[in-house]
Design a protein around this nucleic acid. Structure first.
Lengths: 199, 199
DNA sequence: TTTTTCATAGTACAACTGTTATATAACACG
DNA sequence: CGTGTTATATAACAGTTGTACTATGAAAAA
């Protein structure tokens, strides 16, 4: 009887619009009216899919956290070192999409400090990411090292640091340079495919 | 004839209040009324020292950028490796002050993307930081390496990455652990005091 | 076609924002 | 001790915001 629309798709269109605005000019630019307009709708439609502004922003945050570290479908190599490298490379802001979602993540950081729900979302996403990287590191070191978690954290720190610099100086951080920095970080923790004599 | 107050000190009290609010609950919490109240004043006094909200926020941003990487007065060692380590350690959020100013920096990141003036401030501060670290790296490598800039960027990335993780998970990132991560990063680029046989 | 139900637009409103203007209090100095 | 200047408080203003409500449109099902 009703007019049928794909609710999830509509919701994603709206969170995408919010993410674009936030990435472009910060959280303050994510007005209900502006988000709706960016999506080609009005506030009437927006409130039909999100009860609150709070819910809209929370969903936008979740979507960006997921998309930022989501694997590209075409690079799931079986070889441990290649898999680790691919997973970390996927977190680098090498295309416009990852850049935008990195930006959203950063924009929410301070907000999350004073919002328990956002903080929990952030914490969970990070734990998930860290455990995934740790598992990949374990497959590389093959149990020969006692603290895979520390290695994972060191590599994640390197990736995050590069990402932060690349976000705000994209011209001097081409994808190639980002990958080079990643490879250097991987080499320094001994997670490189060929056990090259780096002595 | 007038009532005399230290203008610069008053301005700093206000930007400090703004920084506290921003670090606690994001840029949106930095209302003129709330900032003034946090400083124990009212908007009337605030507008007496800052023409705009824009000016207040810009000054808050500048102050946080400076304080975040400012050297502690008591650790300016002459030995190159110790100097490099001290400079980088100063950027880590190991006390409440550095934590707060890191938070402010992060909060402004997305905003700076859509604001040319903020972006320029951020870019300049980062360039200054990078060149300072590069100079310290040069003194360590003693010209034996061809690309000190890349080493500096790698180390900065490691520090920033650790800082980002430590900001939102302070309990698992004690100062000692942050320093350990820094030392590991320094070792992996060969900037350690004793040229230990790490082979 | 008719009916029913959802999708969307439009509008109204109270709360809050930055800003400006006005009034009062405090104090250094002649 | 006045007194003129500054510091601060208070109040008023227009614009914007999130939200709630109503009305209209569209399309599937009967």
């Amino acid at each position: 009887m009703p007019k049928i629309v794909d609710i999830d798709e509509r919701r994603q269109e709206l969170t995408d619009a919010a993410a674009r605005l936030i990435a472009r000019s910060g959280l303050g630019a994510a007005t209900l009216r502006d988000v709706a307009a960016e999506a080609g709708l009005t506030t009437g439609a927006l409130t039909h899919y999100f009860a609150d502004k709070r819910e809209l922003l929370h969903c936008t945050f979740i979507a960006s956290l997921q998309l930022r570290t989501a694997r590209r479908p075409d690079d799931r190599p079986d070889e441990p070192h290649a898999a680790l490298r691919a997973a970390l490379a996927g977190a680098l802001p090498m295309d416009e999409d990852t850049r935008r979602h990195w930006m959203v993540t950063v924009a929410f950081c301070a907000e999350a400090a004073g919002d328990a729900e956002l903080a929990a979302t952030q914490r969970d996403a990070y734990r998930d990411y860290r455990s995934r990287v740790t598992r990949l590191v374990e497959r590389c070191t093959d149990g020969s090292v006692h603290d895979d978690v520390e290695i994972a954290e060191q590599v994640i720190a390197a990736v995050d640091g590069v990402a932060l610099q690349a976000l705000f100086d994209p011209e001097s951080w081409s994808p190639a340079r980002q990958l080079a920095a990643l490879d250097r970080a991987l080499e320094s923790v001994g997670c490189v495919p060929v056990s090259a004599a780096h002595c």
